[in-house]
Each structure stands twice: as structure tokens, then as C-alpha cells.
């Protein structure tokens, strides 16, 4: 296929393309000159990978709509007979699910704001000044990422027990606020570095103070990076199990990972409810993740490849 016809193909709509080239030739557009057999093979492999990736999640949906009398069946049907959304109703109204979600949402959102505030001001210091201890500070922040979480749990637990923070949210709130700070500082510092200092100088000549220029110039320009930092903070606190597990013992204080684990423990009787709860938690998270995946994963590839 010549360059001109490829160009034309791009300008045409999908339907027009298919009509013009026929389904077969359209689908196997010759871009690299591979044989149709090889291309079918590639699609087969990728479709198989997709099935493996998606099937367990699909299973959650199937189980969540099973009616009570078919809960334990060895059928692998893709949609059970007499499917019912009853389990969702029971989870929402009869279990503590909404309470757990509320607890998680409240703690997570509150700690995100604190975490991002701390990180954004610290990153500004790292980005705009050369002070003694800057490099070692940055290396220390990186090194914290290598410490096993479980290693810090014993001291944190004993510290919390001595301060009377077990079975309160106070300790959890403080811990979650700081948890993602090292990584957020890295992201934000990298982003601030790309903002020219002249912008700030101009503002300062017009009478802006140093912190004023941070607030009026840097922060508004850094909204994309702040959003990513917020998302990281949110993810870490939202998905945390370990810290919540050692800090909280009363079920009315549980965050959703603890609650979900409790539902799973009783899956012999509550399987469809466990599945319904899992799905309700996962859908918003999955949409958020897939929508922002390019930015989230970009961190690794952007800076390092183009050096």
C-alpha cells in the first residue's frame, strides 16, 4: 500500500474504509508486510492475554449476581439463571459496607490534603534553593522507598500503643499524611524545575513576596503535577491494609480493606455479598486508574529515556 493511500485511509472514517477496502484488507492493513497468518497469531495471543487478565474480574461480577440457591455451583456460565442484584442491596443496607467506605473516604481525603500541602512546600524549597544538605536530603527521600513497610510496623505499633493511639484514627491520619510525602516531593520538584525562575522574578518585581510568588505563580502552573501527587497520596492511603490492620481493632472503625477481608473470611455464607462489595469498590478505582494510566506510568519512561 503506497503512502498516499495510507494517508487517505487515515482521513476516511472507519465505515468508509471498510467499504472501500473490504473487511479483510482493512483489518490486516499492510503496515510491516507481515503475512496474515502472523497477524492472526498476534491477535490470538493478545486476545488470550486479555481473557486471562479480565476473567477473574468478570468472575466477581458473575458471582455477585448469583441468586442464593445457586451460590455454590460448579457451573462456569457467563450469566447465571435468575440473576439478581439482591446482594448489592444487602451489602449496602444490611452490612457495614457503607460505613467502611465512609471511614476510608474521610480519612483518605483529609490526609491527602495534608500530604500534598507538606510535599508542595517542601518541593519548592528543594527546587528553588541550594542549601547545605539538599543533595543528601533528596537521596534520603529516595532511600525511604526501599525500606520494607513491615520493618517499620513493629516500632510504629509500639509507639502508637504507648501514645494511646490504638483504636483511634489519630495515629492513622498522621501516618497516612506523611506516607506518600517522599515520592510526592520528587514528582513536584521535578515539575517545579521546569517552570522558569524569570516568571517568579517578574512577580517579585511587581511587589510579590517569595511565598506570594509560590502561591500565585508556581502552584497554579503546577496543577497537573499536584493532581498526580494527590492521586498517589490517595492511592496509598486508600489501599493500605497493613497499617490499618495493626492500628484498628474495632469493626466500626474499619477502613474498607479490613471490612472486605472480614467479608471474605465468611465467604462460605456471604460469597455474593463479598463479590458485590469488591466490585463496587473496584469499578471507580479501575476507571480512575485506566484513565490516568499514561500519566501514572509515564514517570518512569519520560525522564529516563530522553537523556
Amino acid at each position: 500500500m503506497s503512502e498516499v493511500s495510507l494517508l487517505k485511509q487515515h482521513q476516511m472514517g472507519v465505515v468508509a474504509q471498510i467499504r472501500r477496502y473490504g473487511l479483510y484488507r482493512w483489518f490486516f492493513k499492510r503496515a510491516r508486510g507481515d503475512s496474515p497468518f502472523k497477524r492472526i497469531l498476534i491477535h490470538v495471543v493478545l486476545i488470550a492475554a486479555c481473557i486471562i487478565a479480565a476473567y477473574p474480574v468478570l468472575r466477581i461480577l458473575i458471582i455477585s449476581v448469583r441468586p442464593g440457591d445457586q451460590l455454590f455451583t460448579t457451573s462456569l456460565r457467563l450469566w447465571p439463571e435468575n440473576a439478581t442484584w439482591d446482594a448489592y442491596r444487602r451489602v449496602i443496607f444490611n452490612r457495614d459496607f457503607v460505613l467502611w467506605i465512609w471511614n476510608s473516604l474521610l480519612i483518605t481525603t483529609a490526609t491527602c490534603f495534608v500530604g500534598v500541602t507538606i510535599a508542595s512546600t517542601s518541593a519548592y524549597a528543594f527546587s528553588r534553593w541550594d542549601f547545605p544538605g539538599k543533595v543528601s536530603g533528596l537521596i534520603f527521600l529516595l532511600a525511604t522507598q526501599m525500606i520494607p513497610g513491615a520493618m517499620l510496623m513493629v516500632p510504629i505499633y509500639i509507639l502508637a500503643a504507648n501514645l494511646g493511639l490504638i483504636n483511634t484514627w489519630r495515629g492513622l491520619v498522621v501516618a497516612y499524611s506523611v506516607q506518600a510525602v517522599p515520592f510526592s516531593i520528587w514528582i513536584l520538584k521535578g515539575y517545579y524545575d521546569t517552570i522558569p525562575f524569570e516568571l517568579e522574578q517578574a512577580a517579585m518585581i511587581d511587589g510579590c513576596s517569595r511565598l506570594g510568588s509560590f502561591y500565585r505563580i508556581i502552584l497554579p502552573l503546577s496543577v497537573p503535577a499536584l493532581a498526580i501527587a494527590f492521586l498517589f497520596n490517595f492511592m496509598q492511603a486508600w489501599n493500605d491494609f497493613l497499617l490499618a490492620r495493626i492500628m484498628l481493632q474495632r469493626s466500626h472503625m474499619y477502613t474498607w480493606p479490613l471490612g472486605l477481608q472480614r467479608l471474605q473470611d465468611q465467604f462460605q455464607t456471604l460469597w455474593s455479598e463479598f463479590a458485590a462489595a469488591s466490585l463496587m469498590i473496584s469499578i471507580p478505582a479501575m476507571i480512575l486508574f485506566l484513565a490516568s494510566s499514561r500519566y501514572l506510568i509515564g514517570g518512569l519512561t519520560v525522564g529516563s529515556v530522553k537523556q
Partner: peptide
């Protein structure tokens, strides 16, 4: 394909492990 293959990464990890734990019954 890319989006579907990314599903295991996007699902909250606790949900994934608890579901697998059930499916290994």
C-alpha cells in the same frame, strides 16, 4: 488490548488478592 491487559494493575490490590484467595478454594 492495552486497556484490558492493564486491568490487573488497575484493580485495588486487596480486592484482587481476596478474590483470588476465594477462587483458589
Amino acid at each position: 488490548y492495552r486497556a484490558i491487559i492493564l486491568i490487573p494493575w488497575a484493580i485495588p490490590q486487596i480486592v484482587a488478592v481476596l478474590t483470588w484467595r476465594t477462587e483458589f478454594n
